[in-house]
């Protein structure tokens, strides 16, 4: 016997990626908060540190994605308000959210909690580069400058990796990570 409602629930569950891993993700973030190891790059005196940046080699010159971790070592929250890079006409911060998948939204601003961190990672938040002046390739590095309300402009270098490499960093449940 078919149970359409049950199927609908299961599809929704699978599509929005399961809840079982969620608490662990939250826990990981809490544990990770405030224990940054100090930046190789992008460290600013105000206490914002950018690390683990990478870009996906774009398929077209229309659009590319950059991922990174933003740590706030300071005692006050800060806000990511935008980003720029010489190779793109425009950069948006995008959040993948919503039931069932990639309900993609341009995000006006992303708060980085005091002594906390925000991860821009596959299936969740990313910097979306648009109108690229060229198509960067694996092995290239993209220089990108993030703008924070308090810390000001902070730059980071994002090595370009393949989408296959990005897929191997993707995790089921990424879309549910609370930000």
């Amino acid at each position: 016997m078919r149970r359409p409602a049950a199927v609908a629930t299961a599809v929704a569950e699978a599509a929005r990626v399961g809840g079982r891993g969620r608490r662990w993700i939250v826990l990981t973030i809490l544990l990770g908060a405030g224990c940054g190891t100090g930046g190789q790059d992008g460290r600013a005196p105000e206490g914002i540190e950018l690390s683990d940046a990478y870009a996906a080699e774009p398929v077209t010159t229309d659009v590319a994605a950059v991922y990174l971790t933003i740590r706030n070592h300071g005692a006050t929250p800060d806000t990511l308000t935008g980003a720029q890079t010489p190779i793109a006409g425009m950069v948006h911060v995008h959040r993948m959210a919503g039931i069932g998948g990639a309900q993609m939204r341009a995000t006006e601003a992303v708060e980085v909690p005091a002594r906390g961190q925000v991860q821009l990672r596959p299936g969740s938040l990313h910097l979306m580069l648009m109108s690229l002046t060229r198509r960067p390739q694996v092995g290239d590095t993209i220089e990108i400058t993030l703008q924070f309300a308090h810390a000001g402009a902070i730059s980071v270098r994002a090595p370009v990796v393949s989408y296959l490499d990005v897929s191997e960093r993707a995790t089921v449940g990424a879309q549910e990570t609370p930000q």
């Binding site: 299961a10 599509a15 990639a102 309900q103 939204r105």
Partner: peptide, 29 residues
Amino acid sequence: AYQVGHAAAIVAFTPDNQGRVMYPFGIRQ
């Protein structure tokens, strides 16, 4: 330019043409 929100899951139909398994985003090689 605009973005399109869409479902992130892949549906697998077995050779008998029945959709049986869903693959959420984050499924790897």
